Structures are given as structure tokens and as C-alpha cells.
Simulated assay, not measured.
Amino acid sequence: MNNDVIQLRSVSRRYRSGDGAVTALDGVSLSFPRGSFTAVMGPSGSGKSTLLQCAAGLDRPTSGSVTVAGTELTELSETRLTLLRRRRVGFVFQAFNLLPSLTAEQNVTLPLRLAGHRPAKARVREVLQRVGLGERARHRPAELSGGQQQRVALARALITRPDVLFGDEPTGALDSRTGREVLTLLRGMVDGEGQTVVMVTHDPVAAACADRVLFLVDGRVSGELAGAGADTIAAHMATLEAVPC
């Protein structure tokens, strides 16, 4: 039985055509095992966010194939792709994207309600408890710290029990202590509950929480590190960002 929750095969993504064409991804083949924590790093413009967007079904590759939980994304209509993302994929971004007029629990349930579903109250309590906000369900974003707001965003991403959780700089707007708390929470979800996490980050300390770190350069995979510490990751990044004289 294949244990990969995501597979990318020869994925390329080009924007525009002709002389102004930009190749954001260039023949990338990768797999992400179920229950793993992967960090994606690379210099600015290396294709990190494009990789995440293609893997999550937010963007369609120009060529190649993407499979999530056994379903080939490139063959789906926009409607079916939207349904798959809603049910199988969770997203957490640097911006918390919470509605200020709604409570924590209302923000968590909003995507489901917009889709016409009424989430069970027990499930809402469960995910808020899971991210350590069981006592803050009735608080609005202005009454929560930045770290607590990101925890609400995590709970919102987890409400559908997604096969994979994608994070695009999820700790980028947080101070170091609060960022560590969120990373510890993600690490615990992987170790304790088998959640699959794929996280784009520029921070070697954040990347060190992952099982492996993938490096992109000019839209191509340029190696990986497994079980590396922040110093080793930072040193590797420095070699990728070095500009030859």
C-alpha cells in the first residue's frame, strides 16, 4: 500500500509565454509520506509557494501530475477540485485571515457553513481543545494574542480532518516564543495523531522542527536534509543564496 499522501510527478509551472515567460517550477518530482512533517526552503523566487499551491490544488501545473490522497488533481473539474480541497486539505498562512466580528468558534466553522454544512458542536470543541483554546471559544480575534489567533486558524484548517495540512510561513508573523509554541503544536499533531504537514518557511529554526527539509533553487529540487539542526540548515541555505562574484 502506497503511504504517500501527496505525489508530484514531473511538475512544471510556467507563467505567461514567449519572451516574458517565467518558469516557477521545472520538472519537480516529490512525494510526501503520510504522517510526516516536511519543510520547504529556498532563496526568494525559488518556487516554494508555487510548489505548495500546486501540491494543494490551489494552482494547476502547466505539465506533470499531482496526486493527493489517491486522487489525481490535474484531471478534476474546478468544482470537484474545490470539493477535494474543502474536504482533504487544510491551509494555514502567515496572515491569520480571521473575521474580526466573529468569535473563535465561529471563525473555525465559517468555511463549513459557507459550504452549506453545520459542524457538530462537539467537533468544534474538540479542535479548539486540540490547539489549546478550549476556554477561548467565545473570544473575538481582538481579544486574542497573535499566537492564539494562529491557533484559531489551525483549528479552522483541522475542522474537516484533512489528509494534509499546508502552511505558508505559518510562524512568519509571530515572535520567536509564540512561533515555537505553534511549531510545537504542529510537531505534536504529526507525532501524536499522524497528521501530514508541509510547511514553506524561511526560518531555519522552524525548519528544524520538521522530519526533513527540501531545498528549491530556480524551480528545481536542490537536495534535502533529514533530522538536521537549525545551524546545519542555515549553513546549507547560505550556500544556496551565495551569489558568485
Rank of each mutant, 00 (worst) to 15 (best):
G147T: 01
L25E: 09
R136H: 15
A208T: 07
T79D: 11
T67I: 14
R118S: 12
L76H: 05
H139F: 10
R140C: 04
R14T: 08
P43N: 04
I233W: 02
L30A: 13
A206P: 06
G116N: 05
T171A: 07
T82D: 15
V89Y: 03
R14I: 08
P111S: 01
G179I: 09
S31C: 10
G147V: 09
P204G: 13
N3Y: 05
E78C: 03
F37W: 09
R13S: 11
T196Q: 01
E135C: 06
D203W: 14
T82R: 15
R140Y: 04
V28R: 04
V108N: 02
S29K: 07
H139N: 10
R156M: 05
S36M: 08
Q195F: 03
R220S: 07
V182G: 09
L225T: 02
L83M: 13
Q149P: 06
N107P: 09
A55T: 02
T50M: 15
L112M: 15
A157F: 04
V213Y: 07
L114E: 03
T171M: 13
V243R: 14
T79P: 01
G134T: 08
L185E: 00
G227R: 02
G229F: 12
P119E: 00
L225G: 05
A210D: 06
L185F: 09
N107D: 10
T171N: 11
R212C: 08
F96L: 08
I233K: 12
V124A: 03
